[in-house]
Design a binder for these strands. Structure first.
Lengths: 213, 213
DNA sequence: GGGAATATTCCC
DNA sequence: GGGAATATTCCC
């Protein structure tokens, strides 16, 4: 039943997130600690799936040099791989985590990601990778950034940024709409076929019965 | 595959957590908003399981007065019920959420919980239940939009107009998206029924033919 | 890419 | 029971 996402608990187990109380400021010398579950799971996943199959059926793997990894098939990765290691099947949530831990997407064409401390055969330095989120305590981001400038310009720029984002979202929404409409069309076509099938079936059935009588 | 936790997305769907931007101080008059997913799911779960079976096999139900609920069998609840509604099967995580939303355990002998605003038949006031966590950071959202300044003006207004339009279009697109998604869901349901119908028809047809021979 | 809300886990 | 870290979602 709930086996789905227990797999990893066993594999990684012992998941003592000691990270919390290690106390102290940022900029410490790289201290060994237990890596975040996300990193461990992603690493495990690569170890387990990287050598799988021939290249043509590969879903995800280390890159050739072992300095990063590539998701070759985001669709299969999301549907098949993610739920085996995480509590979801959303590619974007996975990406969100990668960003949180400072991974960089290094190609606009492939889903290839790198992090200096995330490399094949180097499980022992995963503990040095930390979440970005710094100083949650301090003032909100918008106050931080605007502090240095005499604005007038800055709020203008912000506006432009917001504008930019809105336009982008808009574009995406329209694309999404198109996709949804296509899905609906497909559905309708299928429905039609099913209905046809059903009616043909009924006809032929009647004929058979008639003949048999 | 990952169906496990998709069940509810459909049921509750539309999961617009609008809670965020309603802005403002605490102690407002009870404002209607979309209830937190956790509350909705817990409510649904009770609606769906409360009347199940005879008392002896009941896992969870509203209490007699409908003013709270009882988990009769934490073990079964954890193993069977939780994963159908949430992304986990840990009783303690469920309890943690109850505490976060201010529920009280009202008996040391039974797992019975109450919240003033969580009662049988009162789905409409779930939106008044809020997380405890107050004032995580001092400055509320409305400070962000310190918009009405004496800034450079003329092209600014044009900009604002465009902005306004964009936002509106955006809102509409989202509404449209929702409608399209609902259409798709309907389509899928119909497809399912058609397929079922077809398969039943084939079965019964085979039987008839068999009898006639 | 990332801010921020909610969910889940871990720990006291 | 609740603080706090991490995970997941939602949104820009």
């Amino acid at each position: 039943m709930a086996d789905n996402y227990n797999v990893l608990e066993l594999n990684i187990g012992l998941g003592n997130n000691n990270n919390s109380k290690v106390g102290g400021h940022a900029g410490q010398s790289p201290r060994q600690r237990c890596p975040a579950p996300f990193l461990l799971k992603t690493y495990e996943l690569l170890e387990e799936l990287s050598e799988n199959e021939k290249d043509s059926t590969k879903i995800v793997s280390w890159n050739a040099e072992g300095t990063g990894f590539v998701v070759w098939s985001p669709a299969e990765f999301s549907e098949l791989t993610l739920p085996r290691y995480f509590k979801h099947n959303n590619f974007s949530s996975f990406i969100r985590q990668l960003n949180t831990y400072g991974f960089k997407k290094i190609s606009s064409k492939k889903w290839e990601f790198k992090h200096e401390k995330f490399q094949r055969g180097c499980r022992h330095i995963l503990g040095e990778i930390t979440r970005k989120k710094c100083e949650p305590s301090v003032f909100p981001a918008y106050l931080k950034s605007s502090s240095e400038e005499n604005n007038a310009t800055s709020s203008m720029e912000e506006n432009n940024d917001h504008h930019q984002l809105l336009m982008e979202e808009n574009k995406n929404l329209k694309k999404e709409r198109l996709e949804l409409q296509m899905q609906i069309d497909e559905c309708k076509t299928l429905e039609m076929k099913l209905l046809e099938c059903l009616s043909q079936f009924m006809d032929s059935h009647q004929n058979k019965v008639r003949r048999l009588c």
